[in-house]
Design a protein around this nucleic acid. Sequence first.
DNA 1: AGCCGGTTATTAGGTCCCTAACTATATAGT
DNA 2: ACTATATAGTTAGGGACCTAATAACCGGCT
Lengths: 163, 163
Amino acid sequence: MKKIEMPADYYAQTPDANVRATEAVMNTIKTADLIFDRIGRLLRPLNVSAAGGLVLGILRDHGATSPSELGQRLIVTRATVTGLIDSLERRGFVRRSANPDDRRSLMVEITPDGLVVLQKLRTLVHRHEQDWMRSFSDAELRTYIEMHHRIQQTVTTLTADVD
Amino acid sequence: MKKIEMPADYYAQTPDANVRATEAVMNTIKTADLIFDRIGRLLRPLNVSAAGGLVLGILRDHGATSPSELGQRLIVTRATVTGLIDSLERRGFVRRSANPDDRRSLMVEITPDGLVVLQKLRTLVHRHEQDWMRSFSDAELRTYIEMHHRIQQTVTTLTADVD
DNA sequence: AGCCGGTTATTAGGTCCCTAACTATATAGT
DNA sequence: ACTATATAGTTAGGGACCTAATAACCGGCT
């Protein structure tokens, strides 16, 4: 694995950079990329995308949900949710139905087929997650997770306006 | 980069999961996604995508580079690199030229216009990186970076076959 | 009752990324 | 030298994501 490194003259070009902050950010993105890629490969045989799997999980864990709420939970736009639901509905994993209380809105439900695929998907992914993190002690995992919470908190607080 | 969020009761029906490994993985992706989104917003006024900015950075720091090598550094396929280079070339930020040693291969170079935009881009992004990581001490940053190196190492070793 | 700002879902058009298949070139084995 | 295999880049087609615009609907205010 090629680690991300700063070139020797980095400071010359960007004297205001904090090299370690930059490396932290770059490595976060690189690690996430790597893992996301592996999850995608695991899920392809199940005929479901990573995003689709998350939708199924939300529907199973929280029951019928509107596209708007799905968007908020996934942190994607409603337009993206429309596409995801289209795709899952085509495969028969979810179902749209009207919301009698608000005619602008829909409710999306998971189907029996969706439940089957979700169960397979979670079993598969969880097994690999444990492998990927196996060099971490439980205490390190806790620290690592807490650090991410701290970054997420900082980033969202700093840019509360854009959300 | 896709958008992912961890539902609060994700494990309600998957008791076999190692909750902490799962949370570590999901939070890595969520943090990266959050940061990637913010970088994208910063860069839009400069008429460059986040991926395009990474390409420009590699070209400046390592000199002329083949599309294949760019793909390895960015962890994307050669086909994706073709599209990125097309897009950057249209804007005049990079240039393709032949490789005399291997006629299958190309070299991609950054142009003076590309250097200008890269300079602006890095100044902008580095300022924000420091803000995003400001709750971390220098020692914590070092730990955080080392942890990412360890995960990258584990994941690539476990799946050396797929690369 | 009627208007109007806010919300719901969708569509259109664009970017980034993927896989699979293709062409051209390089290299290794016989 | 010849053939088989591998590699470089591109193309074609598809998925997930975005923004902006649209149509339908909700609720509050006059």
